[in-house]
Amino acid sequence: MLLLTCPNCGDRNVSEFRFGGELSSRPKDPSALSSAEWANYLYMRNNVMDAQTEWWHHNAGCGLWFLAERHTRTNEVIKTYPYAKRNA
């Protein structure tokens, strides 16, 4: 079982977390987007077989939503960090 490091609680079994999907921020001004661009935000996914930045929620723990960088083919977790430090 994958061991995920919650930035707050430390290493925990992945069963304590809920996956939040690959990182995609909501457009600042949605009304400025065309239908295709809005559909692209809603539905299209990179779905890479490579390192991917994604959301996780420590729902059975401290309730923190945080980001992780994980290689989707090997499930190797490269790092996890709070959302606030995303461009640190």
Partner: peptide, 9 residues
């Protein structure tokens, strides 16, 4: 510590 116990938080 907060964790899952008997499948509950």
């Amino acid at each position: 510590k907060q964790s899952s116990l008997a499948k509950t938080t």
